[in-house]
């Protein structure tokens, strides 16, 4: 399912909203979530899951072609942990 398919599905279930408003609302939700994560805040949605940043310390990597050592700087990566309801539902109701 893509973003536009999600927008279409939500529009069908929310006939009181114009498809254009549904599109704006979906974009607004994703924008809020992106901004929170970029600022280092957690996102917690009960039954769905939580998003947070994980810190990756600096390390010495290697150029796989030349074997040369390169310093890889530290970084932050987005991480998602599925919530209980989501885990159970994708696993056909069992854990």
């Amino acid at each position: 399912m893509t973003k536009s398919e999600l927008i279409a599905a939500l529009s069908a279930r929310q006939p009181q909203l114009q498809p254009r408003d549904v599109e704006l609302a979906v974009k607004e939700l994703l924008e809020q979530m992106s901004a929170a994560l970029a600022a280092g805040d957690r996102i917690e949605v009960r039954g769905f899951g939580s998003f947070s940043l994980h810190y990756r310390p600096p390390r010495v990597g290697r150029n796989p072609k030349t074997g040369e050592a390169v310093q890889v700087p530290d970084k932050f990566v987005p991480h998602f942990k599925p919530g209980k309801e989501l885990r159970e539902r994708v696993n056909n109701g069992s854990e």
Binding site: M1, L17, L29, L30, F48, R89, V90
Partner: peptide, 23 residues
């Protein structure tokens, strides 16, 4: 709306569909 947004993503995943939210 917020409730339904997450519910639709969950349902798609429960049906075995990948969900791609570009950006």
């Amino acid at each position: 709306f917020v409730e339904m947004f997450f519910e639709n993503v969950r349902t798609a995943l429960a049906e075995g569909q990948q969900v791609k939210l570009s950006g």
